[in-house]
């Protein structure tokens, strides 16, 4: 029930302009792609840690399921799948999938930072080239967004 008492401050305000038909920020498909990238990179690193803890695994890697870390990774994977499905609502699959290539930048970075894996100079160059590719695809989209 709205209050019947008039608030002088509010009355002084100009009437609100009719908002342009724009989706709220949390429905932005690019945010969804970004979250997918982050969550799946975390999942990959957790899978590596977990599968290292359970060596001599079976053919399909079922032995790894004994590891709690693997299950944490599965949780991140499910989260990333849910945001990914949201992203697919409005983005073409090819575009969303190639923007998600940013995972290939985040994963080696995470391996280097958290797993202590060595990343050679040439490999860093590869990571840089992937970044350039993602920017090539993302740039015209960003311009299109601005115009909308």
């Amino acid at each position: 029930m709205p209050s019947l008492i008039l608030e002088p401050d509010r009355l002084a305000l100009k009437p609100e302009p009719i908002p342009a038909k724009k989706n709220p920020w949390y429905l932005n498909p690019y945010l969804h792609v970004g979250l997918t990238v982050l969550l799946s990179a975390i999942a990959q690193i957790l899978f590596k840690v977990g599968s290292d803890q359970t060596p001599g695994g079976s053919l399909l890697g079922f032995a790894s399921l004994k590891s709690g870390v693997i299950w944490l990774g599965i949780g991140c994977m499910i989260g990333s799948l849910l945001v990914w499905l949201q992203a697919l609502r409005s983005l073409p699959l090819i575009i969303a999938f190639n923007l998600a290539a940013a995972t290939q930048v985040v994963v080696p970075l995470g391996c280097w930072l958290f797993l202590g894996e060595e990343v050679s100079v040439l490999r860093w160059i590869g990571v840089f080239v992937v970044t350039v590719g993602v920017i090539i695809i993302a740039k015209p989209l960003a311009k299109l967004e601005e115009r909308l």
Binding site: I94, Q104, S120, R123, G126, V129, V130, T131, V132, G133
Partner: peptide, 19 residues
């Protein structure tokens, strides 16, 4: 442009894999 982007990403990815 999309094909170019895919090509560059794939190139970068291969570069990472062969090193």
């Amino acid at each position: 442009r999309l094909l170019l982007g895919i090509g560059v990403i794939t190139g970068g990815t291969v570069l990472v894999s062969v090193t």
